[in-house]
Deep mutational scan, measured.
Amino acid sequence: MASQGTKRSYEQMETDGERQNATEIRASVGKMIDGIGRFYIQMCTELKLSDYEGRLIQNSLTIERMVLSAFDERRNKYLEEHPSAGKDPKKTGGPIYKRVDRKWMRELVLYDKEEIRRIWRQANNGDDATAGLTHMMIWHSNLNDTTYQRTRALVRTGMDPRMCSLMQGSTLPRRSGAAGAAVKGVGTMVMELIRMIKRGINDRNFWRGENGRKTRSAYERMCNILKGKFQTAAQRAMMDQVRESRNPGNAEIEDLIFLARSALILRGSVAHKSCLPACVYGPAVASGYDFEKEGYSLVGIDPFKLLQNSQVYSLIRPNENPAHKSQLVWMACNSAAFEDLRVLSFIRGTKVSPRGKLSTRGVQIASNENMDAMESSTLELRSRYWAIRTRSGGNTNQQRASAGQISVQPAFSVQRNLPFDKPTIMAAFTGNTEGRTSDMRAEIIRMMEGAKPEEMSFQGRGVFELSDERAANPIVPSFDMSNEGSYFFGDNAEEYDN
């Protein structure tokens, strides 16, 4: 993207840094990872977990959730003011799984939030270390993106479920800051804005008074975040219109849905970061690795190297396929839920299948599930090659597409044709070009129609051997075009429920 120079890199967003050079960025990201790792080690000690239990991804998720809940100030305040039966607002906890007599047992633990905050700050040299908290939120978000298709949420806001490739980060909490905003897809931002506008339509006082002023500035800020994701002048001009509207209503909703559809071809720039579970960072720190000293990046080879040398386990339900569970977590670790499966298959070195073909449910185990038949197995999170994460949407291309997802959002900077089903997408653009945004709409449609099938995206960008740390010898991959490109292809993934 041309304006790259004016933006802070995501590592800076990730670490609240002012302008830093590459070495400083690597050190501050490393410091953040160190903090998460030290916190995780301490929690495993508190909970008396064995090494194996500490490497269980379900335990990692519970521990991450506990610290996120302990620092969720708004919710904590709300819980104190609106006490609900049987919930102690000062405590947080969740299921911890232990191996007892050759069987997995679930144990519900409860801790004072104050105590968890103390352990977290102690692991982070006394700081609140917001960057580390956001990092864990993005890992949870990436896992949700890989596990669930947001059909219901899309339909509720009037969008087409086939636009799911635009929904990265749709389950990120509001408090995820600049680093969170960077990884949100165009569809996620559109959905947040539509929800806001709908509230304004239904509630006369939404934009009024002292609160209304705050609401208005939040609305304009979200519009600017979305505008910054678009790469064409016409899309940005249309966002200006939406932002400046005196009284946002149905016309703005129409414009936003139009823009979301246009992003299936004229893709937005959305950041991709490899955020790993805390149970990967903990053992690495415990083994003596100093992330701050060595430096770390979320968008280069580092996460690949770390996963190459990590042992992570997962509980497996009786009829689940461990290899499929591994694929789910591998995609989440690489922030690749909406990437082209052919690119992923090449990088991973084994075939990556669409969601609907995987015999696996989510990673988390519900409290009512029976533990008797639970097994555990090693997650295979290694890769054959590594590639640089991208934040450009890439230019655009036609490809055989599917009944489910009709476009992709690249996660890796790797040369390819970008699949999208042009006739299906263009069919949504018939007729409606009147109104105050008509010239911009016409211009956007013209650009979409001009998108050429034979153009290559990320020209000359390749993948790298894991021994090639400096990215000196790019390998331009070859793809098996007979395979499906979309992950949520004609899909039956479970729906995400809060």
Score class of each variant (00 low, 15 high):
Gln4Ser: 14
Gly5Glu: 00
Gly5Lys: 00
Thr6Leu: 00
Arg8Cys: 07
Ser9Leu: 15
Asp16Thr: 03
Gly17Ile: 11
Glu18Phe: 08
Gly30His: 00
Met32Tyr: 09
Asp34Trp: 03
Asp34Met: 15
Phe39Leu: 06
Lys48Tyr: 00
Ser50Gln: 15
Glu53Met: 10
Leu61Ala: 07
Ile63Ala: 15
Glu64Ala: 06
Arg65Gly: 07
Val67Asn: 15
Lys77Met: 14
Leu79Trp: 04
Glu80Val: 12
Glu80Pro: 00
Glu81Lys: 08
Glu81Asp: 13
Thr92Ile: 05
Trp104His: 03
Arg106Trp: 10
Glu107Asp: 15
Val109Met: 07
Lys113Met: 07
Glu114Ser: 03
Ile116Arg: 01
Arg121Trp: 11
Gln122Leu: 14
Leu133Tyr: 02
His140Asp: 11
Asn142Ala: 06
Gly158Lys: 01
Gln168Arg: 09
Arg174Asp: 08
Arg175Leu: 05
Ser176Tyr: 05
Val190His: 05
Arg221Ser: 04
Phe230Trp: 15
Ala233Glu: 00
Gly249Met: 07
Ala251Tyr: 09
Ile257Asn: 04
Phe258Lys: 11
His272Met: 04
Pro277Tyr: 04
Ala278Cys: 13
Gly282Leu: 10
Ala284Lys: 15
Ser287Gly: 06
Tyr289Lys: 09
Phe291Trp: 13
Tyr296Met: 11
Tyr296Gly: 07
Ser297Glu: 01
Gly300Pro: 06
Leu306Asp: 05
Leu307Thr: 12
Leu307Gln: 15
Glu320Gly: 12
Lys325Asn: 09
Ser326Tyr: 12
Ser326Phe: 10
Ala332Leu: 04
Ala337Asn: 10
Glu339His: 04
Arg355Tyr: 09
Arg361Glu: 06
Asn370Gln: 14
Ser377Glu: 11
Ser377Phe: 12
Glu380Thr: 03
Leu381Lys: 02
Ser383Glu: 00
Arg384Pro: 12
Ala387Asp: 04
Arg389Ser: 04
Thr396His: 14
Arg400Asp: 06
Ala401Lys: 14
Gln405Arg: 01
Ile406Glu: 06
Ser407Pro: 01
Val408Asn: 08
Gln409Thr: 15
Gln409Cys: 15
Leu418Lys: 00
Pro423Ser: 13
Ile425Gly: 00
Asn432Phe: 15
Thr433Trp: 01
Asp439Ser: 00
Met440Ile: 07
Arg441Trp: 07
Arg446Trp: 00
Val463Lys: 02
Asn473Ser: 15
Pro474Ser: 04
Phe479Ile: 15
Phe489Ala: 00
Asp491Phe: 03
Glu495Asn: 15
